[in-house]
Nucleic acid binder design. Structure first.
Lengths: 338, 338
DNA sequence: CTGAAAGCGCTTACAG
DNA sequence: CTGAAAGCGCTTACAG
């Protein structure tokens, strides 16, 4: 790689020379974020013109080094090669984070972790080096990464993770989501519940939703059956699911991914949701909402949660020690499938 | 004692002092990427130990500035606030890019553009400043951003965009995808075709797929009807789609999002794909493949395409002027719905 | 209002 | 094999 300056990019020194002022004056004239600096308007204009003519772009690295402002944060996301889109919802979080950070000129870097990295976080450059001002942990992280973050002293915002603390956490009320989904099915006259959920409860939301569904079933005195899905989000064999269904059954879907897989199975069997059985989902992302708007569901505004986490990050970077945590409840959207 | 860095993080100077060597020697001892450097094993070990004891993390900014290595690239992705997940497939590209870049120690930053930014690319920090070594343009970008990239002299890899050049582009053969999907339906005995696609052809793939489907229909001498979906990926009203279907009809779905919406409609109508009509999709991402494995489809390995783009970026950063472009054909997966 | 000096933390020449 | 010097591009004190 050629040296940065040799890449043909003009430096501030060249801008200053062209404007006929010193390097320092040029720096101040272009410091848009410090409007109070004493610079003569004519000087500022001359520098600005020189910068425009040369196509000057400030070197963010140099600025970061001298001015202690990187303005870069990293999003820690788990994504295993074998199950690439298990954490698809993370993308909606990332977009919300980005939307909330961009107005502040803060850049978001994607720090992808695998469970393998989980055992060797020192191999991840973003964790090994001083590269980012802060991190946002998205959804579930390996324990070794969490330990390293805690030990590092880095600033971290926890977005939809199982961490509960007075500050720095954005979480959801998932037990309420499970209860709401189940209660809605029962209110529509379904007399028994079937919960379809991933076998592995690796994220707090999965266990809490199951608890909420169980609580609703117990309160109503109706039977509840749990069916588990494997890595491919299929009950094995699918006929076990089919056998458990019926017009008196309310099928509670645990996640958007499970919902999509179930939708395809129902379609293949010619079973009409809402008529041949009741269906409700404890969680819905933008994709599911757009693709299956008829679905009775609890919507979690992930984009908005990402923006909230961004607001926490901004305050953290501004020096605020401990911005308070927030818990957000999902919203029931009735639909027609319950 | 050397001064403590204001960030609280130990510097290389402190490591050197602790190890009893000079700053320069410490730098060389830790330069893992230059194994040929002459450093005595004992010296290297002492420096390494001092670094470990202090919890030293090299400052990537300083290294970038002096050592001419940022090792950060930006992924340019369009995402409009009003239609957040239109570009969902981008996430799969990002994960693939990340997987391909990480082994080289290259970090990926998310540079989100809106169509609004499209008119004001100078407002996007990553474009305004020198922050990233190179860019990867993902899918469709606003013309003003493309112009700015071309004018900037920045290194760019074009991933699934409509740019066709001898170097630096990873693209897909989309006309073949449309043709394949249509031909598969006809081979299963469907006697007329219905193409369901977004009204707005803002990505090259949409127009090419439509062309491929039309070519297949013409070659077989069967009628073809095009139905258009709006922003919410619904035909308005949905009954227009229903009226067009039938056991003799082969329904060609243009995109994964259209496929998901259609799946929900068919399920609501109790129409069984493969029995009550034929269905095939011109494109499938990981989510659709996992959720609807029965679907007859053309699979586009976006993760793999991202990895290919990463390989191009690595070669670009290594100084190679023009790594050759690649065109990748999707793979037909028969399924049971045609 | 403007400029000379210092230095952010590191690596790359160049001498020993 | 190791160290003193220079400097990447910029901003932040401090003087005028």
């Amino acid at each position: 790689m050629p040296p940065i300056a040799a890449s043909g990019q003009p430096t501030l020194r060249e801008v200053a020379a062209r404007a006929g002022v010193s390097l320092i004056t040029a720096s101040r004239a272009l410091a848009a974020d410090k409007p109070g600096l004493p610079v003569r308007p004519a000087t500022r204009a001359a520098v600005q013109r020189a910068a425009d003519e040369l196509g000057y772009r400030p070197n963010a690295m140099a600025r970061a080094m001298r001015g202690r402002r990187h303005d870069q944060v990293g999003a820690l996301v788990v994504n295993n090669p074998g199950a690439r889109l298990t954490n698809l919802a993370a993308y909606e979080y990332l977009l919300g984070l980005n939307a909330g950070l961009e107005p502040h000129g803060i850049t978001l870097s994607l720090v992808r972790l695998t469970d393998l990295d989980g055992h060797h976080p020192e191999r991840v450059r973003a964790l090994r080096e001083q590269l980012l001002d802060a991190f946002v942990a998205v959804s579930h992280l390996p324990a070794s990464v969490v330990e390293r973050l805690d030990a590092s002293g880095d600033r971290v915002v926890w977005l939809d993770t199982d961490r509960r603390a007075a500050s720095g956490c954005i979480a959801r009320d998932e037990a309420a989501a499970g209860r709401l989904a189940a209660e809605t099915l029962l209110a529509r006259g379904r007399r028994r519940l079937v919960l379809l959920r991933p076998a592995k409860l690796d994220h707090y939301s999965l266990a809490e939703r199951a608890r909420g569904v169980a609580a609703a079933a117990a309160a109503a005195g109706v039977p509840l059956v749990e069916l588990l899905t494997g890595p491919g989000y299929v009950t094995d064999p699918p006929e076990r699911l089919r056998a458990a269904l019926g017009a008196d059954a309310g099928l509670v879907l645990s996640t958007p991914t499970v919902a999509l897989r179930t939708l395809a199975l129902l379609a293949g069997w010619g079973l009409v949701p809402g008529r041949d059985l009741g269906v409700a989902c404890c969680d819905a992302d933008d994709l599911l909402v757009n693709g299956w708007p008829e679905l009775t569901r609890i919507e979690n505004p992930r984009h908005g949660l990402g923006e909230r986490a961004a607001a926490l990050l901004v305050r953290l970077l501004a020096g605020e020690a401990a911005p308070a945590s927030e818990t957000v409840a999902g919203v029931l959207v009735p639909g027609t499938t319950a």
